[in-house]
Every structure is written in C-alpha cells, then in structure tokens.
Write a protein that binds this DNA or RNA. Sequence first.
DNA 1: TTGACTTTGACCTTATTTGACCAAAGAAAT
DNA 2: ATTTCTTTGGTCAAATAAGGTCAAAGTCAA
Lengths: 157, 157
Amino acid sequence: MAFISSLTDHIERYIKALLDQAGQGGLEIRRTELAELFECVPSQINYVLKTRFSSERGYIVESRRGGGGYIRIFRLEPQHPQGICSWIRQTIGESIDMGEAEALLVRLLDHNYLSRKDAVLIRSLLAEETEQLKPAHAGRVRAILLRSMLILLLQGS
Amino acid sequence: MAFISSLTDHIERYIKALLDQAGQGGLEIRRTELAELFECVPSQINYVLKTRFSSERGYIVESRRGGGGYIRIFRLEPQHPQGICSWIRQTIGESIDMGEAEALLVRLLDHNYLSRKDAVLIRSLLAEETEQLKPAHAGRVRAILLRSMLILLLQGS
DNA sequence: TTGACTTTGACCTTATTTGACCAAAGAAAT
DNA sequence: ATTTCTTTGGTCAAATAAGGTCAAAGTCAA
C-alpha cells in the first residue's frame, strides 16, 4: 500500500470523478484515449479496472472490441444501507444447502429487504432448478442462483 | 451518457426506428439507397442485417435481386400461448451459450420486457458466475441462472 | 529480502469497414 | 423464345480499429 499516489490511484480518482458527473446510466471511455491522457500503456487501464472497479466494490464494467469499441463503467448505488450485497456474497459462499438458504430468506424478509411474493418465487425457483441435481452439485448451483437472484432484486430497477 | 456509436450502430438504430413506425407488416428498404444515406458501401448493410437483425434476435429478412429488388425486414413478437415466461423457458432450454443469451436479452430489451439497468446486471452476473466453469457445464448453469433471473423479474413484485 | 502491488510490453481476440467479384431477376434486343 | 444487357442484391476475405491477457520486471514498505 503506497502512501504517495501511484498512477493507478490517479486513474482511479479520475474515473470516479467522471462517474460522479455522469450520474445514472454509467460512463463510457476509450481505453486508448485514457491511456494517452495518463501517458501509460493501455493495459494499465485494465489493471485499474480489475483492482478498483470490481463487482465486489460495487461496479460493473462492460466492454466491446473492434471498431467503435468502448469500455462502460456502471456504479451500483447502494440503495440498501451498509454493504448488504457483499454480506450476501459472503454468507452464501461456494455452496449452500436448502436449510441455510431458507434461513437467509427469512432474515431478509424480516428486515424487509425482500417482498413476500419475491421470497415465494425464489423458493420455488431454487427447488425447481435443483431438484434433479446430485446433492453436492445442487449446493453449488443453489449458491450461484440464490446469490444472483438476491443481488438482482436488491440492485435492479 | 454520450454513447460511442459505430456506423453499424447508427444504421441499426435507423432501421429499428423505421420498424417502430411501420408496426406490423414489416419494412422495405433499398440496399443502395440506405448505403447512400449513410455514405457507406452497400455490403455494410448486409453486415448490419447479419449481425443485428438475425433470426436469433427475432427478425426475418427477405430480399430479391434485379430490377425492383428489395430487402424486407420483419420483427417477430416473442409469443407463446402460455405467456412470456413460458416462451422464455422454451427459448433457453437445457443449455445456452453467451451469444444466445445476449440475443435473448436484446430481444427482451427491444420489446420493453426488461430495463437497461436490469439487462446490464444480468449480463454481469451471468459472466461472473460462469467464468471459471468448463464450457459444457457453463452452458447449463447459464441456462438455469438466466431462466431464474428473468422469471423472477417478470413475475415478481 | 521478501511479498504485495504496480508498471510495461509482447502477443491475442474480436468487431467493423471496404472492395473486388459473384448471382439473380427483370428488360430489351434478336 | 433466346440471348444479352442492366439493375439489384450477396459473399467473402483483407484491412483496420478497438480492447484483452499474461507474465516479466520494477517498486516499496515491513
């Protein structure tokens, strides 16, 4: 951890300032332009994106190659207090059984992060999609499914 | 947000706007005229049709050469007797690759079943959760995930 | 002096744009 | 009826324009 600002820190701050201006809808940049602005190699930009704008940190990055290529950066506004989403990611982990999943749903329901209707739907989708899987595999699929559905509901529009 | 747009993107938007106006019945264009309008070579139009108006994305394109030649474009409504969710289940099936998934998302976006933000989130979750899986397995997980997320959004509260 | 973080560069993948050449369908001429 | 333009649209591959990956080399604090 450097005390003085590294190039990476500067680029990070620059992008975050742009995001502040951009508001909703996200921000679009060209990798080469940004690299020229900071007089660095283009792959430096990828490093900044990977280390500072990861989904764990609440960002989504999409990009396209070729003519008309771009990099888009979206900041997920935490509309629910504290880091509920990172807590969910932590709690679910690699694999989760039905009992743990149920307990998690109940907690989210209790705290009104989830509507009753959505909880019912999630239960039935979890059951439907894992019923024919071998238990060990079912746990991993359940984790992926539950994590994605919850994050989608909590962050989506 | 000022979208970066390639020529292809502009032509795509132009055709989609024409289709919106045209309603049922489809739309007829002259390849050469369109090419002149956008000051490009005629084969550019074929490229746009191939990449943006594929049957995977829900379009039908027919054409005829010679004097009085034309290109007709029809947009298909996603339709299933049991409703959009059944249509989605059927379309996704047991396994789906990223290209098919993207086509489905674009199609739902085109028909306003999905918000832009939700589409971005879904894309990112699909990528994140399948990136370390072997391709064959990734396809099945992607199918499960995409199906669940879409149904959750379309049926939920 | 080691370990984590950063910086660089060589090489790779993908999307778009262009142009030369091909094929079909109607129109005109024989 | 058949052949020969003329008018369209189709195909494909090369050139161009992005962005991605990965590992080696460099830095810096503990």
